[in-house]
């Protein structure tokens, strides 16, 4: 079985993102870029499945300009067998991305596609669910536990009310939550080895997918700031202050 894993290049989660003064976007100049943290967890899970003997090949896929090859190389260094770059200069909306992934699925015929539950830049949380719809296959989103049983998988999902478990037939799409696993660190020799692993570049047009989407972002603005509050000295003052404000 092959496993496809999506990798997105995003602004590192430690960076405090700022909106450009003209509202045209956020400042990404010289900012540290990383693999979307959820995608690292997705890849880690795929590698563990392969290491347990339940998959033969893990393929990392990213859509973007050539700079995303850096994140694909990180994925290869973590242990993926090969990489595919869906080459495009535009940033894709989730449906276009899902359509492009669908074309890769048709070529590779994976048994599992594992993605992050959301990208920490757009916070959209759409691609996995859309891909499952286009593929007409099961989706198990926000996974915190995955147990493979031959041609099916039991997936525990983090939902608002607690933990839900569903059973899905493969092939399927799984999107992962933070507590599924802890991704491994990349070691230097692995980075050297990753340079020799195959990385295929497929132009987006070759997949017959267009970048147009129904949504357009017209303006960026900084969020409303909360006013600076007061400091109190001790628990007694705190309780008194809450009482004064009618909060307790």
């Amino acid at each position: 079985m092959k496993i496809l894993v999506g990798i997105k290049r995003v602004v590192d989660y430690n960076v405090r993102v700022r909106v450009l003064p003209d509202g045209s976007g956020v400042d990404t100049d010289g900012v540290k870029m990383s693999v979307n943290p959820f995608d690292e967890i997705a890849l880690e899970e795929a590698l563990r499945i392969r290491e347990a003997g339940n998959a033969d090949e893990v393929i990392v896929v990213s859509a973007g300009g050539d700079e995303c090859q850096q994140q694909l190389r990180t994925g290869l260094a973590m242990g993926a067998d090969r990489a595919i770059q869906i080459q495009t200069g535009e940033s894709l909306q989730p449906l276009s991305l899902a359509r492009a992934f669908m074309k890769v699925i048709e070529r590779e015929e994976p048994g599992l596609v594992i993605l992050g539950k959301q990208a920490i830049d757009d916070d959209n949380s759409q691609t996995g669910q859309m891909l499952a719809a286009l593929w007409d296959r099961p989706q198990a989103t926000f996974a915190s536990r995955v147990v493979l049983n031959g041609s099916s998988a039991a997936v525990t999902r983090e939902v608002d009310a607690g933990l839900e478990t569903i059973e899905i037939d493969l092939p399927a799409v799984i999107t992962v939550d933070l507590r599924l696993n802890e991704p491994r660190f990349v070691k230097l020799p692995d980075i050297m080895k990753a340079k020799r692993k195959p990385l295929d570049v497929i132009p987006l047009d070759e997949l017959g997918v267009t970048v147009e989407g129904n949504l357009s972002v017209t303006r960026h603005a900084p969020p409303a700031q909360r006013e600076k509050g007061i400091m109190v000295e001790d628990a007694a003052q705190l309780v008194q202050e809450l009482k004064n404000r009618g909060l307790i």
């Binding site: 602004v11 405090r16 993102v17 700022r18 909106v19 956020v26 909306q93 989730p94 449906l95 920490i120 830049d121 757009d122 916070d123 959209n124 949380s125 759409q126 989407g213 129904n214 949504l215 357009s216 972002v217 017209t218 303006r219 960026h220 603005a221 900084p222 969020p223």
Partner: peptide, 30 residues
């Protein structure tokens, strides 16, 4: 269609505000 995720404000029937980057920016989506 693509989805408009997390509408926090309605500008019009086809324009909405939503947060990105963990709420560090608010965008208008048409």
């Amino acid at each position: 269609v693509n989805q408009v995720s997390d509408i926090m404000e309605v500008n019009s029937a086809t324009s909405f505000k939503r947060p990105i980057y963990a709420g560090n920016a608010i965008v208008d989506v048409d």
